[in-house]
Amino acid sequence: MKNVAVVGATGAVGDRMVRLLEERNFPVRSIKFLASERSAGKTLTFRGKDHRIEPISGDAFRGVDIVLSSTPGSVSKEWSPIAAAAGAVVVDNSSAFRMDPEVPLVVPEVNPQDVARNKGIIANPNCSTIQMVVALKPLHDAAKIRRVVVSTYQSVSGAGMRGIRELESQAEATVKGTDVPAPAKFAHPIIGNCLPQIDDFLPSGYTKEEMKMVNETRKIMGDPTIDVCPTCVRVPVPYSHSESILVETERPISVEQAHALWRKAPGVILQDDPSRLEYPLAAEANGRDEVFVGRVRQDLERPNVLLFWCVSDNLRKGAATNAVQIAEELLKLDLVRS
Rank of each mutant, 00 (worst) to 15 (best):
K317Y: 03
F308V: 06
T321I: 08
F33T: 05
P266N: 13
P101H: 05
I121F: 04
M1C: 09
N93Q: 14
R288N: 15
R302F: 12
F292D: 02
D92C: 05
R165Q: 15
G205V: 02
C229S: 13
Q271T: 03
V175L: 13
G158A: 04
L202I: 00
E23A: 06
I326S: 04
E23W: 11
K144C: 00
R263V: 12
T249V: 12
D289Q: 13
V110S: 05
M221E: 08
A182V: 04
K317L: 02
G267Y: 03
R147S: 14
E168W: 06
Q154D: 08
V150W: 08
L34H: 04
A85C: 03
T178Q: 13
R146G: 11
A9Y: 03
R276Q: 14
R337N: 07
P224G: 06
P181C: 01
A258C: 12
A83H: 01
D227C: 06
P112Q: 06
A5T: 05
E243R: 00
L44E: 00
K119N: 14
S95G: 02
E248D: 07
L315A: 13
V311M: 07
I31Q: 08
I245L: 04
S169L: 10
K2N: 07
D59P: 01
G177I: 10
F26Y: 14
N314D: 06
A260H: 11
R98N: 14
E290N: 15
G205C: 09
K317V: 12
A143I: 11
A320N: 10
A40T: 14
L261N: 09
V247C: 04
G287Q: 11
M132D: 03
I121L: 00
L333V: 02
G73R: 11
R302A: 11
L270I: 13
K176T: 07
R316Y: 08
V311L: 06
E54R: 01
A5L: 07
K317E: 07
W262I: 13
Q170H: 04
I121Y: 00
L202F: 05
A260E: 15
A182Y: 00
L306Q: 12
G87F: 07
V89N: 01
L139Q: 10
D223Y: 10
G14K: 02
S312V: 07
Y239R: 12
N304W: 05
E109C: 11
D50C: 01
L167D: 03
D199T: 05
P236V: 06
S57M: 03
K185V: 09
L300P: 03
Y206A: 10
G205S: 06
V237S: 05
H140W: 06
F26V: 10
I269A: 09
S39Y: 04
V233M: 11
E243L: 14
G267A: 06
R295Y: 07
K42P: 05
V133Y: 10
R302E: 15
L335I: 08
L300S: 09
R117N: 10
Q325N: 14
E209W: 01
P183R: 02
K2A: 08
V150E: 11
P274L: 12
D273F: 10
R337Q: 13
L21D: 05
R47N: 15
